[in-house]
Design a protein around this nucleic acid. Structure first.
Lengths: 225, 225
DNA sequence: CTGACGCTTCGGTGCCGCCCGAAGCAACGG
DNA sequence: CCGTTGCTTCGGGCGGCACCGAAGCGTCAG
């Protein structure tokens, strides 16, 4: 039975402090133990224990650099697992939720592993679908010819040799709708950073949309945000 | 923050008894509280508590029928979450594993929600791919014309109106390779049950391949099992 | 070398929650 | 109507683990 192993992994995610750490690392960055201890709101000793357990279990990998130790999610599989847990958590319980300003910022725009999520992510996906640049189906999506041209204009060239440009959708856990992930989602995100349309906030998970970005999204994608 | 909710869901899966229950329900069946208490190896009272918590959290739904209460996974999202946790659990830790006969049977053939998994599931996927009846790409798959014809011969008619017959792949957590899920995977599984090629074992998760089935898989799919 | 910093290990405390025994309730069968 | 079966709630015991304070170890700056 692999059940005990499954329980072990789930139990690791099941502690609030560890869940916070994982969720902080969710966008793919590598952070130091101290930064994570700050994020999780526990002392460095406690954080150290958590990080050791998760590394041991294969959820995290660590990169030693001088006197710092940088932790990151070990594999995309881990990110995918977190995402599916979040999807269930978001869809399942009505529960009460206080709604903080912090949470609102997160809801507006954030990164999900390596691509946009939140209202921004969903708006981009909607815009591309509406113009038939991307066709989303039940478990994936494809970029049309017009979409390829559109992305080209936007400064993104997709490899032409692949049968189907890798374009996935990803259930947004605040909006409960799809945003784009995969190669396409990541490329759009990177491009927007390069264009200066978005910036990281003090809370590194939330994104700030610049005035230039608002204008750009309106002109290129046709939505106001 | 939705982090605490995520931790809550993960913590539910993180208890061995509950993980066993969820894993027992993983193939989509509905079982009574008593059956589940047997599977989880705890008393009915304890099981009752677990089931209540998981139902409350939206992981399970319950169907009252006379004096029985049938529990099943609430949504496919939950099954997907379990699957991704299993994938991480299987890929992450080398750990020791005793290898029981029971586990070998499970590894040979079992159902994964509503479709075949294990060596059987992977073999079917391999056979269909090799003959170009199905093309698997990075995050899904499609059925070709020849595949449609093949399935037709096999007694399965796919709806023609859908843009792309829904065919997903699903990472097999014992074989670490893909098997087919989605509509196609489920249809093949159902058909094999109807043909008497597979039967449920005493352990309801494991499947028994009948002699007729071995012959059939050899003739129709070209693999020996 | 000395101090500061990042991170770890060690020991002890407190709390959460898993578990079972006992008892209660609801549905079915005779 | 009473016994059986399926499932629940209640109460208490007990183990495990998250947490912190203190101290130790490597790394870097001066």
């Amino acid at each position: 039975m692999t059940v005990p192993q499954m329980a072990e992994i789930a139990a690791l995610v099941g502690d609030p402090a560890r869940a916070t750490i994982l969720s902080t690392l969710f966008d793919g960055r590598a952070l130091t133990a101290t930064e994570l201890s700050f994020a999780a709101n526990v002392t460095p000793q406690t954080t150290s224990g958590h990080l050791a357990k998760m590394t041991q279990a294969g959820l995290l990998t660590v990169l030693k650099q001088g006197r710092h130790r940088y932790f990151r999610l070990a594999t995309p599989l881990v990110a995918q697992m977190l995402e599916s847990i979040m999807a269930v958590a978001a869809s399942a319980p009505p529960r009460y939720r206080p709604r903080t300003a912090q949470e609102d910022r997160l809801r507006l725009a954030r990164t999900c592993y390596d691509h946009f999520a939140g209202i921004l992510g969903v708006s981009i996906a909607d815009a591309l679908c509406e113009r038939k640049h991307v066709i989303l189906s039940d478990d994936g999506g494809e970029v049309t010819e017009s979409g390829r041209a559109f992305l080209n204009d936007f400064g993104i060239t997709l490899a032409t040799r692949t049968r189907r440009p890798i374009c996935r959708h990803c259930l947004d856990w605040t909006e409960r709708r799809f945003h784009l992930s995969g190669v396409v989602g990541a490329a759009i995100t990177t491009r927007c950073f390069d264009l200066g349309w978005v910036r990281r906030e003090r809370n590194p998970r939330a994104l700030q949309i610049t005035p230039k970005g608002r204008e750009g999204f309106r002109r290129s994608f046709g939505f106001s945000i």
